[in-house]
């Protein structure tokens, strides 16, 4: 694979795209939200069970490109077991990373495997693909009833 291609389509992303984690429905979730990217038709559902301020379970369903699907998949693996506050912190850090907000080396390190999405910021048209799941999770946590749209 060529370099620019590899920057965006890292193996981890391709793997999660092929075999997404937590790709299922949670029946009667405590928190739920739906996200749309009207530009490309991406459509995602985020289901969460938040008990005593802790994300006991999180899953997703929907249609999307490799970037949005793998981003959702990796997000669920990171957020599961975290506190509500930590989940929101990760949302902010991820958002900063893909939109190109300057981060310290410590902050970068704390992103862990989310760093595979760093290359996305070189592709402005794809930033929304990577952040759709995160915005939708953020909305699910806040318990907003409105549908999230990237436009």
């Amino acid at each position: 694979m060529d370099n620019p291609l590899r920057e965006i389509y890292q193996q981890v992303i391709l793997d999660h795209n092929k075999s997404p984690q937590n790709f299922r429905v949670i029946e009667n979730p405590t928190n739920y939200s739906e996200g749309f990217n009207p530009l490309c038709g991406d459509h995602i559902h985020i289901y969460m069970n938040i008990v005593d301020g802790k994300v006991e379970d999180i899953s997703f369903q929907g249609n999307g490109c490799a970037i949005s699907k793998s981003s959702a998949s990796i997000m669920t693996t990171i957020i599961k077991g975290k506190s509500r506050e930590d989940a929101e912190k990760y949302f902010q850090k991820f958002h900063d990373m893909v939109t190109g907000v300057e981060t310290t080396p410590e902050e970068e390190e704390s992103l862990g495997k989310l760093l595979v999405f760093q290359g996305v910021r070189e592709f402005p048209a794809r930033v929304k693909c990577a952040s759709l799941a995160w915005h939708t999770m953020h909305s699910a946590i806040e318990g907003k009833e409105t549908t999230i749209s990237t436009e």
């Binding site: 490309c40 999307g64 490799a66 970037i67």
Partner: peptide, 26 residues
Amino acid sequence: NIHPHDIGTIFDLEGVAIRTGHLCTQ
């Protein structure tokens, strides 16, 4: 199993401009 947006990005990286999406015909 390959989303059009991923196809569009790879086309773009190769210098080929095509359109991907619902094309205003949902």
